[in-house]
Amino acid sequence: MSSLKVFTNGLLKENPTFVLVLGACPTLAVTTAAFNGIGMGAATTFVLFFSNMLVALLKNYIPDKVRIVAFIVIIATFVTIVDLVMKAFVPDIYKTLGIFIPLIVVNCIILGRAEAFAQKNDVSRAILDGLGMGIGFTLAITILASVRELLGNGTIFNIPIVSENAKTMLIFILPPGAFITYGYLIAIFNQLKAKYNF
C-alpha cells in the first residue's frame, strides 16, 4: 500500500464512522452542533496521531502478552493530556463535550488502530494512518452534527440557514434524532460507496 493510500484509507474506504461503525458513543452524543463535531474530532485525532506514533516506535520493546495493557497506558496518557489542555484553553468546548473527553480512552477506533495497524508498521505509516483515521472521523461526525444542527436548530456552525420564524425539528438535536440521522447517513454512504466503488 502506498503512503497516500494509507492516508486516504481512513477517509473513505475504511471510514471509522460510516464503514467500521467504531466509536459510536461520542459520534451520537456530541453531535448536537457542528462545532462540537470539530472539537471532538480534533481531540480524537490528536490522541490517534500520538498513540499510533508511540506504539509504532515502541513495538519491538513491548512483549506480546502485555501489549494491550501497554497500549491502554499510552492512550490514556494522551487522553489525559488532551483533557488538561482543553480545560485550560477551550473551556467552553470542554464543558459541552464533558465526560466524552476522558471516554476517548475506550473509543474502539484508537485501540483498534494500535492493534491492527500501528504495531505492524513503521512510524511514518502509522502516523499517516492515525491522521487519516482521525480526519475521517472528524469529517464524518462534523457532517452528522451539521445535519442535526440544521434540522434541529436551523443553523450550521451557528450561522442561521433558515428564517428565524421557521419551525425547526427539535427532535434532531434530542437523543432519538442522533440515532435516526446516523442510521440514514450510513445508508446514504453505503449507496454512494456501491455506486462509485471507492
Binding site: P176, A178, F179, I180, Y182, G183, I186, A187, N190
Partner: peptide
C-alpha cells in the same frame, strides 16, 4: 447498521 440505528432512535 442503518435499520438498527433507526430502530434504536424510535
Amino acid at each position: 447498521f442503518p435499520i438498527s440505528l433507526v430502530t434504536a432512535g424510535l
